[in-house]
Design a binder for these strands. Structure first.
Length: 427
RNA sequence: GGAGAGGUGGCUGAGUGGUCUAAAGCGCGGGUUUGCUAAACCCGUGACCGGGAAACUGGUCCGCAGGUUCGAAUCCUGUCCUCUCCGCCA
């Protein structure tokens, strides 16, 4: 969330930003409530001051009648305070809801607008678009012929949007994890395998809303836990309520987790096969940085994502996401869209990774700060997240781009040591 | 799952109803001494919400949420977490 003082002091800029992001937020009401909050807080403070005074005088009073009288006075004061406090609590609660609903500010260079038309293509990957002298299949057909996935089995056991990976797809899944991990290890990331569940409080700190009709999140009944939609949640939560030393920054973590998404309201939209599923595995990057480091870190994450897909010999483009599609926490977001020859009529780009600079928006909620030697006080860190590889969509890109005329799929060189073969042959 | 112990400032840790305005140590900042560094000594040192030009000043905060009381770090209830032992288990 944004700092409340910042919102009050920059109400116009915040309103304008909400508009650019397509977020309805009552900034004026927030500013008004904040003034009310301050008044009520003053009342409570004054009542407390008097009650404290009375309490202290009782400790010193000797005369029993005097003590009784003062006790009554104190009791009445506390009762009055409780009433004012209740009113104050109501104001604070509403203020909090309003404040949480306000998205992060946007990078001045982020393209303004909504949807794909507004987004800007920044660059292309090293691999050119493939030219097939046959009709390329989509990953579902390829998977069927190669015995890689079982969607019917997934639907029977769990439901629509679930699947079994089988045979060489299992090797590919593990190979992709290990490939990404090895690249990140060489870059100094601390590797983790994170929990697949997290407390709702942590989810909210990262910017997810665990319950409600629109939620993307599966929650666990009779608990305050939810299945994570991304390891961003667990990695960010890992350092919640922590004060770091400036020289520790940046902290670079990567985490492997399963990701669970309800995809509520997404039915019928590119739902075929592995593209939009309820569960997949992902290797995620996460960084905690000093404020002046975060912009460079975003570029670095984006460069790493490109490097990973260049290695996989998958064509892609990098998108500077428009303000209307940034979501709540991101200040700026770059998406990497891989070419998927089996999508649409002639092939289409489909999102495979996404990296965001969330500045201090998540850190404020999660209370993650750092201290500079020789300086008083602490500041909030900046947090960044980026997909290294989301396995399900990575599989789509691999299978569809590397399919060959004989129905086989070539395995890119970087994965061969992990898969143990050069090609996946039809059964 | 059962029994017990515990959660206090950046860290360690004392504190069983009013003088806690939270001891002490470490760390950190400043100073004295000193060729330099180190050591020693002295002083200072939390966060948040307010008021004030400032000096300064009011309030809140001892895992979290309630409760008892004029008054709670301290007593009561719930909850989360950590540790020890027992049971169960991959």
């Amino acid at each position: 969330m944004l700092d409340r003082k910042f919102i009050v002091d920059n109400a116009e800029a915040v309103k304008e930003n909400c508009q650019r992001r397509g977020v309805k937020a009552d900034v004026d009401r927030l500013v008004g409530l904040d003034a009310q909050r301050r008044d009520k807080q003053g009342e409570v403070d004054e009542l407390n001051r008097r009650a404290n005074e009375v309490s202290k005088s009782i400790g010193k009073a000797k005369d029993p009648a005097e003590r009784e009288a003062r006790k009554n006075e104190g009791r009445e004061l506390r009762e009055t305070t409780a009433a004012v406090q209740t009113a104050l609590d109501a104001i604070v609660a509403e203020l909090d809801v309003l404040q949480r609903g306000i998205p992060n500010m946007s990078h001045p260079q982020a393209p303004v607008g909504f949807g794909d038309e507004a987004s800007v293509e920044l660059k292309r990957g090293k691999t050119p678009l493939p030219k097939f002298d046959f009709r390329p299949l989509d990953h579902v057909e390829l998977g069927e012929r190669l015995g890689l996935m079982d969607f019917e089995g997934g639907a029977k056991v769990t439901g629509h949007g679930f699947y079994f990976l089988k045979n060489d797809a299992v090797l590919l899944e593990l190979a992709l994890q290990r490939y990404a991990l090895d690249v990140l290890l060489a870059e100094g990331f601390t590797p983790t395998i994170t929990p697949d569940l997290a407390r709702n409080e942590i989810l909210q700190g990262i910017g997810y809303i665990p319950r409600g009709p629109e939620t993307q999140i599966y929650s666990v009944a009779d608990s305050d836990l939810s299945l994570v939609a991304t390891a961003e949640i667990t990695l960010g939560g890992l350092l919640s309520d922590t004060i770091l030393e400036a020289e520790q920054l940046p902290v670079k973590l990567c985490g492997i987790s399963h990701c669970y998404r309800t995809e509520a309201g997404a039915h019928g939209r590119a739902t075929r096969g592995l593209y939009r599923v309820h569960q997949f595995t992902k290797v995620e990057m996460f960084a905690f940085t000093a404020p002046e480091q975060s912009e460079a870190m975003l570029g670095y994450f984006c460069e790493l994502e490109g490097r990973l897909f260049d290695g996989l010999e998958v064509p892609y483009r990098v998108i500077d996401t428009a303000t209307g599609d940034l979501g709540g926490p991101a200040y700026r977001k770059f998406d990497l869209e891989a070419w998927m020859p089996g999508r649409g009529e002639q092939g289409e780009f489909g999102e495979v990774t996404s990296t965001s600079n969330c500045t201090d928006y998540q850190a404020r909620r999660l209370d993650i700060r750092f201290r500079q030697k020789g300086e008083k006080g602490t500041s909030f860190v900046h947090t960044l997240n980026g997909t290294a590889i989301a396995i399900s969509r990575g599989l789509i890109a691999l299978l569809e781009n590397h399919q060959q005329a004989d129905g086989s799929v070539r395995i890119p060189r970087v994965l061969r040591p992990y898969v143990g073969k050069d090609v996946i042959l039809p059964r």
